[in-house]
């Protein structure tokens, strides 16, 4: 199996998890998701420094965009 085929399969995995596991969460039920510790990036300055150090000392690069989650407020 080619590398990209494998990658595709791994990409499928989280989506299928989402499809099967998702429950509708109403707008007023997002208090927990809005907690600061539930953010993808709970402490941006800490993440920035960590990425900075790991980027300098390791060969890998590339991470999350920290959007998503939050309170669903308008």
């Amino acid at each position: 199996m080619s590398g990209s085929r494998k990658l595709l399969l791994v990409l499928l995995l989280p989506c299928s998890v989402m499809l099967s596991g998702c429950q509708p969460v109403q707008a007023w039920e997002r208090g927990v998701l809005a907690k600061p510790e539930m953010a993808i990036d709970a402490n941006p300055l800490e993440t920035q420094l960590n990425n900075h150090i790991y980027f300098s000392k390791e060969a890998s690069n590339g991470g999350h965009s920290a959007t998503g989650g939050g309170c669903g407020c308008n």
């Binding site: 989506c15 998890v17 596991g21 429950q23 969460v25 998701l33 539930m38 959007t67 998503g68 989650g69």
Partner: peptide, 12 residues
Amino acid sequence: SQVIDRNSLFQS
């Protein structure tokens, strides 16, 4: 990013 339920979310 996907909200899975009231208490969990996932991002890829």
